[in-house]
Nucleic acid binder design. Structure first.
Lengths: 338, 338
DNA sequence: GTGAAAGCGCTAACAG
DNA sequence: CTGTTAGCGCTTTCAC
C-alpha cells in the first residue's frame, strides 16, 4: 500500500541503507547516487514513515505545547508565535489543551510525550513531584510555573505595571482598585500590589474571584462604592466586564473612572473604548520557550543549572484611562444616575 | 532507559503478548492476570510507546486538525470542542495552524499525516486536485470547503441570518447595510443577501474588504452616509470595529443604528454594548466533524458516497440591535454631532 | 561510499 | 485464556 524505503531502493538499484542515508544524513552519500534516489523516491511518492523513524532513531521532529485554556484569548497568539518559531527551526508543534485540570493535563502529556522531542508546559497544574518525574523522562520547560531544577520562562509584570501606575499617578489618581483572580501570593497579585504601594497610591483589593467576564460585571459597582478613580483588572477579560457594566450604569470611561487590563489580548484592542492594558508579548515568550527547550533537547543528559528566562511587559495606553475626575467622586455617580 | 513491555512481562511473570493485550485489548485477558500486569506496569512506570504501537498497528490514536488561523477567536472554541469530543472517543487531537497559506498548510499536513489516523481540514486553501490526492493517502474531511467526493461539514448561515432579518424587520428597519469580506459568491455573502432581499429590506453592500477590525472602523461612516438604520457585518470582529467607530462618532448603538455580527465569538459577549450575532455552535461542528471523520476511519477503503453534514445557526440577540430610530435618519447624525 | 544485518517496542496471527 | 513467532519501516553499527 504505502511506498517504503525498500521499494525505492529496489527501483533505484541501491541498498536500503543508502536510501535511508539520503533522507537522514544526505552528506554521507555520493551526490550522483543521492540524486538518483531522490528522483525515484519522489516519482514513487515515497514519504518517510515518522513512526518507524522515531521508533528507531528516537527523534520525532516535533515539540509539544500544553496550554491551560485555548479559549482564553491570550493563548492563541502565543501558540501561533511558538509554532512560527519552531517551524523556522525545523520543528512542528503539537498542541493540546489541559482545561486547567491536572488529570486532563496528565493525559495530554502522556499522549504527546511519545510523539515529541520535548514539551512546553504552560502554567502546569501538576504536582511538583510529578513534574520532576516527568522531566526525567523527556525534556521539559515550564512557563509561568516554578519548580526548582526545571528550566523555565517567567513573565515579569513589574515593568508594565509600573508604567501603568506611573501613568495613573501622572493623571492625578490617588486611589486604585485591583480585581484579583489568582491564588493569594501569586506573581500577578504581588507585583501589582507592590507597584501601587511603592507609588504611594491607595490600593483597594477585591477578590479573589474567577478570571471571568462576569467577575468584571460584578466588581464594577464595588469599585464605584469604594470611591476608587481607577481600576486594574486581573486580565483583559475581567476589565471588559467592568467596561460593560460601567456603560450599563451610565458611568463614563475614562472620564469617571479609568480602567486598565492585563495581557493585551484582541479584546483590548477591539473594545469600546479601547482598553489600556499591560502587554505580554507572545513573541518574547515564544522566543524564550523555544530557546530553552531546544537547548535542553540538544545537550544529551548533560545536566546544567536550570535556566530561567524572564520576559518583560509594557503598558499599551488606550482610551480607557485618563485624568482623574476632579469635581465629584465617582462613588456618587450611581445614585445620581438613578 | 525506558521501561518496555518486556520488563513488565518478566516482572509480572507472563509473556510479552499478555502485557500487550492488557493495554490494547484488555477484555481478552483474565482479570487476575490483568490486575497483576497493571500493577507491576504502574510500579515500573511503564508507558506504551506510541511510535512502536502505530508502526505495528497502523493506528496512532490521534486526529489532526488544520485550522486557517488560531488567532481568529472563532477557532479556539471549535478546537476545544473537537478536542473534547475526540477525547471521549479515545483520541487525542493534534492541531496546527496553516496561516491561510497553501504551502504552510501543506507542510502542516505532511507533518501531521504520519502521526494521525485522520485529518480535519478547515477552509483548506489547497487546490482541489491536491485535496483529492491527499484523500487517497489518509482519511480526511473538509469543513467549509467543497470538493466533490470528499465528506464535509458545511455551515449554513441561512437560518440564523433569517432570524436576524426578521428581528430587524419587526423593529421597523427598512434598510440594512452589509459589510462583506469574502470572495464574491461565497456562502456567507450569498445567504445574507438572499435573506435580506427575501424579507423585502433594502440592502446596501460595502466591500469586499479584509475581515479585520479596521474594516469596521472604516465602514462605519459609509453606513451612516447611506442612511441605513442597521448593519450586518461579515463577522464579529468587523462588527466591533463598527461599534468602536460609532462610539467615537457619538452615534448611539442601538438607538441610532443596530449592529449585528456573525460567529458569536467571545468578542460579541464582552463588547459594550453586547453584540447581537449569528451563532455558529462549536459543539455542532465538533460533533459533525468527528462523526464524519471517525466514520471514514472505521470503514476500511469501503467507499460510499461522500457525506455532507450541514450545521445550522441561530441569532443570539444582545443589546446592539433594537427598534429603528424614527424621528431623524441616522445619516444626519454625523454633521449634527460636529 | 556502500551493503548486510540487527534490532527499536509493539501487535497480530497462530498454536497450545 | 496465554505463549511463540514474525515482522511493521527505519536507522545504525560494522564490514567491505
Amino acid at each position: 500500500m504505502t511506498v517504503t524505503i525498500r521499494e525505492v531502493a529496489a527501483e533505484a538499484g541501491t541498498s536500503l541503507s543508502t536510501v535511508s542515508r539520503v533522507f537522514s544524513n544526505p552528506d554521507a552519500v555520493n551526490a550522483t547516487t543521492r540524486g538518483r534516489v531522490l528522483k525515484t523516491a519522489s516519482r514513487l511518492g515515497y514519504q518517510p514513515n515518522a513512526a518507524a523513524r522515531s521508533l528507531r532513531g528516537g527523534r520525532t521532529g516535533s515539540l509539544g505545547l500544553i496550554i491551560p485554556d485555548i479559549a482564553n484569548p491570550f493563548f492563541p497568539p502565543v501558540m501561533k508565535a511558538i509554532q512560527g518559531k519552531a517551524r523556522r527551526l525545523g520543528y512542528t508543534v503539537l498542541v493540546a489543551d489541559s482545561n486547567e485540570r491536572p488529570n486532563e493535563e496528565f493525559e495530554a502529556i502522556e499522549a504527546l510525550r511519545p510523539r515529541v522531542d520535548g514539551l512546553i508546559l504552560w502554567a502546569s497544574t501538576l504536582q511538583e513531584e510529578k513534574i520532576i518525574e516527568l522531566a526525567a523522562r523527556i525534556p521539559i520547560i515550564l512557563v509561568n510555573r516554578e519548580v526548582a531544577g526545571i528550566p523555565q520562562v517567567q513573565i515579569s509584570l513589574s515593568a508594565g505595571v509600573r508604567q501603568a501606575v506611573e501613568h495613573l499617578k501622572a493623571y492625578g489618581h490617588e486611589s486604585c482598585a485591583f480585581i484579583t483572580c489568582s491564588q493569594p501570593g501569586s506573581n500577578r497579585e504581588v507585583s501589582i500590589r507592590r507597584e501601587l504601594e511603592e507609588a504611594g497610591i491607595r490600593v483597594v483589593e477585591f477578590g479573589p474571584y474567577e478570571a471571568r467576564f462576569e467577575t468584571g460585571l460584578h466588581a464594577a459597582p464595588l469599585v464605584l462604592a469604594d470611591g476608587a478613580t481607577a481600576v486594574i483588572a486581573h486580565n483583559d477579560l475581567v476589565a471588559l466586564g467592568l467596561l460593560q457594566q460601567f456603560a450599563a450604569l451610565g458611568i463614563r470611561v475614562p472620564e469617571d473612572v479609568s480602567v486598565i487590563g492585563i495581557d493585551d489580548t484582541i479584546l483590548a484592542a477591539t473594545s469600546s473604548p479601547g482598553l489600556a492594558t499591560v502587554r505580554i508579548d507572545p513573541n518574547d515568550i515564544a522566543e524564550a520557550a523555544s530557546d530553552l527547550l531546544l537547548g535542553i533537547i540538544g545537550r544529551t543528559a548533560q545536566v546544567s543549572p536550570a535556566e530561567v528566562i524572564t520576559v518583560g511587559t509594557r503598558l499599551v495606553p488606550r482610551a480607557s484611562s485618563g485624568p482623574v475626575r476632579v469635581n465629584e467622586p465617582a462613588k456618587q455617580l450611581i445614585s445620581k444616575e438613578k
